[in-house]
Design a protein around this nucleic acid. Sequence first.
DNA 1: CTGAAAGCGCTTACAG
DNA 2: CTGAAAGCGCTTACAG
Lengths: 359, 359
Amino acid sequence: MKNKTIRAATLADVGRAAGVSAMAASAVLNGAKTSSRISEATRQRILDAAARLRYRPNATARALVNRRMNTIGVAAIIGEGELNDYALEVFLGILGQAAHHDQSTTMFGLHDWGRDTSRLHQICDSRIDGLILIAPMFTREAVKTLPVHTPFVSLHANSVLPNVVNIESDEERGAFEMVRHLIGRGHRRIMHIAGDRGQVGAERRIAGYRRALAQSRIRFDDSLLLFGSYSAEIARGEVRRWLGEHRGRLLPQAIFCANDGMAIGAMEALAEAGLRVPDDVSVAGFDDTLAARMCVPQLTTMRQPLKAMGARAVEVLLDSIKRQGGADVPESENPLVFPVELVERASVASPPSLDRKVP
Amino acid sequence: MKNKTIRAATLADVGRAAGVSAMAASAVLNGAKTSSRISEATRQRILDAAARLRYRPNATARALVNRRMNTIGVAAIIGEGELNDYALEVFLGILGQAAHHDQSTTMFGLHDWGRDTSRLHQICDSRIDGLILIAPMFTREAVKTLPVHTPFVSLHANSVLPNVVNIESDEERGAFEMVRHLIGRGHRRIMHIAGDRGQVGAERRIAGYRRALAQSRIRFDDSLLLFGSYSAEIARGEVRRWLGEHRGRLLPQAIFCANDGMAIGAMEALAEAGLRVPDDVSVAGFDDTLAARMCVPQLTTMRQPLKAMGARAVEVLLDSIKRQGGADVPESENPLVFPVELVERASVASPPSLDRKVP
DNA sequence: CTGAAAGCGCTTACAG
DNA sequence: CTGAAAGCGCTTACAG
């Protein structure tokens, strides 16, 4: 293949072609206030020359003097080469809002928050103006070594990071309301498949689950609390295992999962056992990611406004960049908590009139 | 929130702190061949100073002189704020491979290939070294106006772009083999839900479908050819409509969809009508995206190695960047065609022994 | 083995 | 209204 790329035209080239200085060209071409001081005639000549030469301002040169690359970074864990649905939704929210502000979005896939802190340093070398951390998990030690010349915003951070705004949603209440909803439909034997022990989001959902049970005086049964690491596969395995170990015993009437993927995993395990959703068992998810509408039956779930949260992260970050660090959000409003919302679809119904046993 | 960011240390700062020139610092800090000429003692002093000042090379300054930002761009259509599963898989393949080469990946969400060509020009302002176009659709006219100073690679381009390597998969054969597979399982009344008319990929799948039917002397029935625009929703609507219009008539034994999302849409419509997959109707997809494993029953599908294709796009692009335009792929190997592979899962079985009617 | 100079492409003061 | 100068932070020749 031929057609080697040629050196792109510079401001100097445009100036030369128009018979003016590069500076004059700069003034009219980037619509600076100084451009008003340039006569209409030369202005036209410059515009023409730029068009003729297909002039494009060089972003890196600009960035060097403006100390602004006009791109924001996003760091998220990519496990097994898969970006999880949660992070994807957030990313899309970020992408849209960033584009709206004419900012580019650079994605960094991390494997481990602990091991990859050095990678964060590499990243913060002025190629990005600020960084959004999706669900970061840092130790107290690691937090101290974070880059300081680049503003951060985090979503669902596992622990509050000093001087960074954290955006989260009301997960405890979400779990609480979902379980209230299930109880309202008549369920009492409700299994919960949680995320990772120790991870705040997982613990908050467990807390909401237990609070709802307690409020209805339903005894917490820890044989009904499974852990699925936010993974469809693991959740499927756990449910499969549980069913295997409880043959002939009572089936849960409903399964509340801490995210949509695990709910789908649970549905797969139930289907393998010949159980129907929601006829035999109701299943509920959390997040309302694309997957919730991509399964049959569609999932009743607790919606987190992930796109909006991503978009908000961009706003906060951009603001923080503008004021060169520090954000406009008062300490008292950090974290920024978004409300959640119950989305009823087909995977939850009333429990069967006769108690079902594990087949 | 306090803690304004402070100006980051520069090479000059490091040099000053170590009592050497910025140039010496540069030599040792970026491990250039010239660094070998620097004495071990000063070398240590420089390293110490850099660590003490937490020196980080400024990427934009570097980019300005090296004419290399070390980031690649990815442009894809984002419809309704959703990146489709296909593009997501490709993107993840790109992300991984780019990281492997220490390249950043900047994502650009487009709305329309036609209207957004000007956006491509904005993008190609040296903020990226090269651009990967995911499933671009350009008119002959538009192609001529594409930026010329930035190397491109495309995946599944709708028409061959001059001087850009296009990566695709053997879609016609994929469709052919899927339909062969269905016929092998005993199906003869096979519906096809296609992508958009006129879009190459859609046409190639239709061609493969027809070739397989012809080979088995099954008459092509155009009432069994639906168009679903690669959208789960549209496919669901189309199947719903078809069922409504064919009450009491023969049901197709199998539905082959041109992507996984449409297969899921079809399954939803079938479920609504009380039909079971695969007991009453078999359903097959195309792509093998995450969704194919996220539905119940899991989808039999024709796998395109999307991650590998994305990774390959990075390799070709990086090569093209290195040689400043032009690629190492001979004309004769453009497009670069990847093989597809049948993945058997639970959504396809033998047809029911008695012909089913539309309920 | 090390430094002073020039330049990447741009913008921001400062002169005229 | 317009231009010459300086500088953003770095690297690449070129001198010593």
